[in-house]
């Protein structure tokens, strides 16, 4: 990073991950997936050309929302569900700041659903990290809006009768301009996506599958364990065919409009038959978002969609500049004296 010294010289200081760790003890349960996410965020921040004081972490309520306390940056631990609203105020008031939102599935999708969709729609420059553990952790184990149908939890001893949200679909539907999904247990990949999200103009949304080892342990085991992961995870790479499986022996192709998992082993289909991923295609992103809900399909991980659209705060600033150009800098006396005025003279 650059710090301008008094004499005008530019001094370069390179941060390390440690520089972003606050002096507070981290209080998540031992083994919680949150630790990995915290570590990856701290690791990628030095890669950005942003001085530490420009990073602001804003959270709501829930286990994930303790995150700002552990970062040596600016932070606000807000109220349940409202992190995107507070963060929108911060970012639009001072667009120079790098504003991160740290939230969970309950915080972002349930109590704060409205704020989430509207910040995505507006494309305000927020980096939204949504830790999805498919359970309420902090309140000790009730089902969340991403818990699978029928799940038995403290508040649903006979199973839920709530259909879950698909967060990626929701973010796409809300016009998100950067929509991705990551795994807490794939740190390298998480770092790459975090960096891209940090550099994206407008709202970035990353759903991070996060293991809550106390109340919903193993929710993503199929996607994270060595034996099962290859057959269940499909890494999305722009410009590459959709291949997965232990020996890269499976792929996804389109049969008309319908996606189909095919084997590459029996000679019937080859690489050239597979669907080539294009992360700029909204249609493909929407299609791929359905995979995690389809029987026999792998769960896509990576960047589903990225597109360029003007960020809200930039348009806000531009509008102010344009009006200033047209009307000149505001003159308070003139404003107070505008409209129909008349003078009463002393007589």
């Amino acid at each position: 990073m650059d710090t301008t010294k008094g004499n005008g010289d530019v001094q370069t200081k390179k941060y390390t991950a440690k520089d972003f760790a606050s002096d507070q003890d981290v209080r998540w349960c031992p083994g919680c997936g949150d630790y990995s996410i915290l570590a990856q965020v701290q690791r990628i921040l030095p890669e950005l050309d942003t001085p530490k004081e420009k990073h602001v972490f804003i959270s709501g309520i829930g286990c994930s929302s303790r995150f700002p306390y552990y970062m040596d940056a600016y932070g606000v631990h807000g109220i349940h569900g409202r992190a995107p609203a507070i963060a929108s105020g911060v970012k639009t008031a001072n667009p120079e700041l790098n504003v991160w939102v740290v939230s969970g599935d309950g915080d972002a999708l349930s109590i704060g659903g409205n704020h989430l969709i509207h910040s995505l729609r507006r494309n305000i420059g927020l980096k939204i990290l949504m830790f999805n553990n498919r359970i309420y952790g902090l309140t000790k184990g009730q089902y969340s809006p991403t818990s699978e149908l029928g799940k038995k939890t403290k508040s649903t001893p006979f199973g839920t009768i709530d259909y879950p949200f698909n967060p990626v679909q929701l973010a796409l539907g809300a016009e998100g301009t950067f929509v991705a999904r990551c795994l807490d247990r794939d740190p390298k990949h998480l770092q790459q996506v975090l960096l891209r999200a940090a550099r994206h103009e407008g709202t970035s949304f990353i759903e991070i599958y996060q293991n809550c080892n106390v109340f919903n342990d193993g929710a993503f085991l199929q996607l994270t364990e060595k034996e099962t992961k290859p057959d269940n995870v499909l890494y999305l790479e722009h410009g590459k065919p959709l291949v997965f499986g232990k020996d890269n022996d499976k792929g996804v192709r389109l049969n008309g409009f319908t996606p189909e998992v095919v084997s590459l082993k029996d000679g019937k289909y080859g690489m050239s038959d597979l669907l080539v991923y294009d992360e700029t295609s909204f249609d493909l992103a929407v299609l791929l978002a359905t995979f995690s809900d389809r029987q026999g399909f792998p769960t896509p991980i990576g960047v589903f969609f990225q597109t360029e659209r003007k960020a809200y705060e930039d348009m806000m600033v531009k509008q102010i500049e344009d009006v200033k150009k047209k009307r000149g800098e505001g003159d308070l006396d003139k404003l107070l004296r505008s409209g129909n005025t008349w003078v009463v003279s002393s007589n």
Partner: peptide, 11 residues
Amino acid sequence: PGTPGLEHRIG
């Protein structure tokens, strides 16, 4: 936020 050296957390 943005002020060097005053990084802190409130909530």
